[in-house]
Amino acid sequence: NQASVVANQLIPINTALTLAMMRSEVVTPVGIPAEDIPRLVSMQVNRAVPLGTTLMPDMVKGYA
């Protein structure tokens, strides 16, 4: 099963992502692949992401 990127904390809108904000977890539906975590660092979210939410490509500016 593919691990996805999950929010490790509440991430406010327009926040630049850091490693501490993300974790890898096997979830359904599948979100951004966990191997993309290094690429996500310093990218901004375009909405508030609650703790435990799977990051989807449309939630991260410049990812999709």
Rank of each mutant, 00 (worst) to 15 (best):
Y63D: 03
P57E: 08
S24A: 14
V5Q: 00
V41R: 08
R47I: 14
Q2D: 15
A48N: 10
T15A: 10
T18H: 06
P38M: 11
V41F: 13
N46D: 09
I11C: 03
N46H: 11
Q2H: 12
K61R: 15
V27Y: 03
R47K: 12
L55G: 00
R23Q: 04
S4H: 02
Q44H: 12
G62P: 11
A20D: 04
A16K: 06
E35C: 15
S4D: 01
M43P: 00
P38F: 08
L10D: 15
N8K: 06
V45Y: 00
E35T: 14
V30I: 09
Y63I: 04
M43S: 10
V49M: 05
A3R: 05
P50C: 08
S24M: 07
V60Q: 00
A16F: 11
P57G: 13
V6Y: 03
L10M: 14
M56L: 15
P29H: 14
A16Q: 14
V41N: 05
R23G: 04
A48M: 08
S4W: 02
V30Q: 09
T28A: 10
I37D: 00
A48G: 09
I13F: 13
P50L: 15
E35S: 13
A16D: 07
L17Y: 00
N1I: 15
L19W: 14
T54E: 02
V26G: 07
R39W: 05
A64C: 09
D58Y: 11
N8D: 08
P29W: 04
V6C: 03
S24K: 08
Y63T: 03
G52P: 00
L40Q: 00
N14Q: 11
T15N: 06
G31E: 01
V60S: 01
V27N: 04
A64W: 03
Q9I: 13
L10P: 14
L40T: 02
V27E: 02
L17C: 02
M22K: 00
Q9M: 13
R47M: 11
V49L: 10
E25W: 05
L55T: 00
V45A: 05
T28D: 15
N1V: 15
Q2A: 11
A7V: 07
V26F: 15
A20C: 13
S4M: 03
S4Y: 08
L40M: 06
G52W: 07
M56I: 06
K61C: 15
P33V: 14
V5N: 00
A7W: 01
A20I: 15
V27R: 07
I32Q: 01
N14F: 14
S42I: 03
L17K: 00
P29D: 10
S42K: 09
V45L: 12
Q2S: 09
A16P: 14
P29S: 07
T54Q: 04
R47N: 08
V27A: 09
I13E: 14
Y63E: 03
P57D: 06
V5W: 02
M59L: 05
T54A: 06
V49G: 01
P38Y: 09
P29R: 03
G52L: 05
M21D: 03
N8W: 14
V60W: 02
Q2V: 08
N8C: 04
P38D: 14
A7E: 00
P33G: 12
S24T: 14
L51F: 14
A7D: 00
V41Q: 15
G31Y: 02
L10G: 14
A7N: 01
Q44M: 13
L55W: 00
P12W: 11
A3I: 11
V49R: 03
Q9Y: 10
S42T: 14
T18N: 05
I13W: 07
V60P: 01
V27T: 12
T15H: 11
E35I: 08
A64E: 07
T54S: 04
A64R: 11
L55H: 00
V45I: 09
M59W: 09
N1H: 07
L10F: 09
A20S: 15
P57R: 13
D36V: 05
T54H: 03
P33Y: 14
L51H: 13
A64P: 07
A34V: 11
D58I: 13
Y63G: 03
V49S: 02
D36A: 06
P57C: 15
L19F: 14
G52I: 01
L17A: 00
V26C: 09
L17S: 00
V27M: 10
P50W: 13
V60H: 00
L19M: 13
S42L: 14
L19G: 04
L10T: 13
D36S: 07
I13G: 10
I11Q: 00
Q44D: 06
